[in-house]
Design a binder for these strands. Structure first.
Lengths: 206, 206
DNA sequence: ACGATCAACGTACGATGTACGTACGGTGTC
DNA sequence: GACACCGTACGTACATCGTACGTTGATCGT
């Protein structure tokens, strides 16, 4: 029996295996050993399928309930969980980030975020803003990670060299930091920005 | 005479006028009163055209040189300039954000960002990290803005009502903050997060 | 004047999303 | 048991897409 769940699952698996360009209704149907048009009994169109895929991946978010802990570690864990599911499906990441679906990704994480902000002592409107800001950072980070990956392995090999050989008159700091700019440690970068954010929130008046 | 510039320009104009879905090589050619295949004398393929469009839009970044000012206002201005070009081409925003091209968007803004971080007293590696973090936030914000816009005018009208009527047992804070969650003031939200970030950086040890 | 170069073009092909009509198996009603 | 109904799977068909390939015509250096 064909179901929306199976279709979405096959689509995610297919993208993880063959990349996003390989995603087509025909390919998904093939994956399930089914005719193309059968899919349309369960999914209205391709856009809906994409949305379903984003939801599916984000549904794996695990949100441990640990309300007794410090809000800072809870906030960190929430954002990390978001990043984790994205990294577990690396080739779907763009999908997730650009389709983070209504109210960014289901209500549970939103509720959780607001709860944490509340426990941290912030009022409602501020909580909403804080959540939006942090989500922006998380989404942006994921986006940047994948872009940087694409860039780094599209550049010939000696990217740092190319940067270093730029005109030092026009780009003094870029040439100086050529090495740092072409190195990429997504984990550390992500945590660096996350810390920055959490500390900033911590310093906010209530 | 057909040129890459004219093609890219027509493509951007077309997307701004008719939306991203209307972008096709045929449509661009039509816009220029030219046969489809003529485009390929100047642009190797559609992906390259997209990249060109992102570059084009970002080329409008104005980066006033005001090195005597406080680094905080310079940093803010740089990020705002980024957001401004994106907002000037709202329907291209997704393009820009997801194609922010090698070394995120040309070298000048990168150089400028590193320069500001340097003037703020940070060492090289930290400067790179700071820049990455702030770019992540900016990109994420833009992404979230457009998503939220799409969401808000896809929801029936009374979105706040729908939120408020959720089960208050499971989603106490969401129901409580229904109104705030469905209101959207991108400008204020953006500035809120930007301030947060700048202040966090300011508080960092050197 | 003439050959070379190159921008513009037309044709053509394979792939894609999906509208539409059909076949068929299971379920409820008499 | 007969029959009407409905939902699921399917096949065909079409418009549209990106682009490979071969041709034409104008321009320019000699």
């Amino acid at each position: 029996m064909l179901t929306r769940e199976r279709i979405v699952g096959a689509a995610v698996a297919l993208v993880e295996r063959d990349g996003a360009d390989a995603l087509s209704m025909r390919a998904v149907a093939g994956e399930l050993g089914v005719a193309v048009m059968s899919l349309y009994n369960h999914v209205p169109n391709k856009a809906a399928l994409l949305k379903g895929m984003a939801e599916r991946v984000l549904a794996d978010l695990d949100l441990p309930e640990n309300r007794h802990l410090d809000w800072r570690v809870r906030a960190r864990e929430l954002i990390r969980a978001f990043r984790r599911v994205a990294r577990e499906n690396p080739r779907c990441t763009d999908l997730i980030v650009t389709h983070s679906v209504e109210v960014p990704f289901g209500l549970k994480p939103v509720e959780r975020g607001l709860e944490i902000a509340h426990d941290a002592g912030f009022d409602g409107p501020t909580s909403v803003r804080l959540m939006r800001a942090i989500i922006s950072y998380a989404q942006g980070s994921l986006l940047r990670e994948t872009e940087q990956m694409r860039m780094l392995d599209s550049l010939p090999a000696d990217a740092a060299g190319a940067f270093a050989e730029l005109d030092p008159e026009r780009f003094p700091r870029v040439t100086l930091l050529a090495k740092e700019l072409t190195e990429h440690d997504p984990e550390t970068d992500f945590e660096f920005g996350l810390d920055l954010f959490i500390n900033a929130i911590d310093a906010l008046p209530r």
